[in-house]
Structures are given as C-alpha cells and as structure tokens.
Design a protein around this nucleic acid. Structure first.
Lengths: 118, 118
DNA sequence: CCGGATCCGCGCCGATACTG
DNA sequence: CAGTATCGGCGCGGATCCGG
C-alpha cells in the first residue's frame, strides 16, 4: 500500500505522468475508440496509449467495452469516478491556457493544433 | 518554445512531477522558510526542495525573499499567479482524499501523517 | 541556516517489429 | 483495428559531500 501525506499526491498518482490526464480529458466528451484517441493525440505512441488506458482502467477511471467482431472494436469511456474529475480537468486546462498567455512566460509555451505540438 | 495541444499539458509542466504541486500547496497557507518546508515534507531531500522552489520561482508561481543577516533567512511565498492555483490545488487534494477511500481502491493508497509517508 | 555540486540508479517513455 | 514484446536512452529524483 502506497502511503502519502496529502490527497494531492494520490490524485497525481492517478492522473500524473505525461499522458494519463490528457487521455482522460479527451474521453470526457464521450466514448472513443483506440484509433480515435490516437488521431486526437497524434504524438502519443500506440504503446503509450494502450498502457495509459490500462492504467486508467486499473484506477477505475475508465471502462473498456469490447465488441466481439472483426475487425476488432473497442471503446473507452470514463466511469462515474472518472466523470467526477471532469470539472477539475477543465480547470487545469483553462488555467494552463491563461498561463501560457501571461506576459511573464510569453514565448515559453505555445498551444497549437495537435499536428504541430511536440 | 515548448508546444502543446492543450492547456492541461502546460499546467502539468508547471505543477507536475513529484514535488512541485505539493510544495506550492503547502505554501498557500502563508510564507515559509526552507527549513519549515523541510519539516512539513520530511520525505523530500534538501536538494529536491531547493530545486523545486527554484523551478516554481522560474515559473512565476513563487517569490523568494532574502533577508541579509546571519544566520541567513529566506522566505518563500506564492505570487499572485501562484495564488490563482489555490482553488485547483485544493480540489485536487480533496479529490485524492475521497478517491483513497473508495471501496474500489481501498488498501491501495493511504493518507498518513508525513512521518510515516513514503 | 541555506544552498551548490557530483555521482548514479531506476523507471518513464519512445522506436520498432510482430500477432490475431 | 487493437494489442504485445523487446530494447534502450535519458532525465528525474535520491545520496552524499562541500561552501558561505
């Protein structure tokens, strides 16, 4: 059992890292197939996408629905627990957007369409 | 200039990682000296504490005030920009607290006094 | 009391190739 | 289309010693 001194650390354990929060954020608008997510987040590799989704599922934030057919079809959607993070994720997103425009950090960060993002 | 496709990534760039958000969170209750922070977060090493504070300062979220005296005294406090993160940090903290008590993850995470935390 | 400097292990994350 | 397997770089974060 991992021990922390503050709930903040627990949340970070769950949506921290490079991709987890972002993937969850894009799932909030409705169920997505793996390939859709890959298209929305072009810079993620297939490996990291699958791994991220598995971690989110293990954390109980995302549910995985499989259709037994060919070609395979899998859809991911946020669970109720995952949905409960929606307002927070949106605030984090908005804050970052405003922050990037602060004169203090102007030229440090840029928000661009996915194709051009690093 | 770092490029992102979503403000969320920018925010994570600033409060992500193992310590940045946590240190900022504990600064919200008022200015703190280095040694105070070290006492509040015993598991952080001095190196990481200093490094974290410098990064937060470079991001414009924390201001560093030095008193020229012996023994040296330095105080850190959140800037206005840093303060603007306060509600979000609190929500992240509360969410993590509730999450740790979900039956789904019971036994996975525990929130304990700093001395026992890992 | 406060901070800098070095060394280094480990794990995150990426690239690539392959299966059903 | 969805997922697995393997290999490896690199940087975060930790331990420790040193200086003002």
């Amino acid at each position: 059992m991992k021990k922390f001194s503050c709930g903040f650390e627990v949340t970070m354990e769950v949506i921290g890292g490079k991709w987890k929060g972002l993937v969850l954020y894009f799932l909030m608008n409705g169920p997505k197939r793996t390939s859709e997510l890959k298209r929305i987040i072009p810079n993620i590799t297939q490996k990291m996408l699958i791994q991220t989704l598995k971690e989110l599922e293990a954390s109980g934030l995302v549910s995985r629905k499989m259709y037994n057919q060919v070609p395979p079809k899998v859809e991911y959607s946020p669970t109720e627990l995952g949905e409960s993070l929606k307002p927070i994720l949106q605030e984090l997103c908005q804050w970052g957007g405003h922050y990037a425009e602060q004169e203090y950090v102007e030229g440090e960060f840029e928000i661009v369409p996915p194709e051009e993002a690093s």
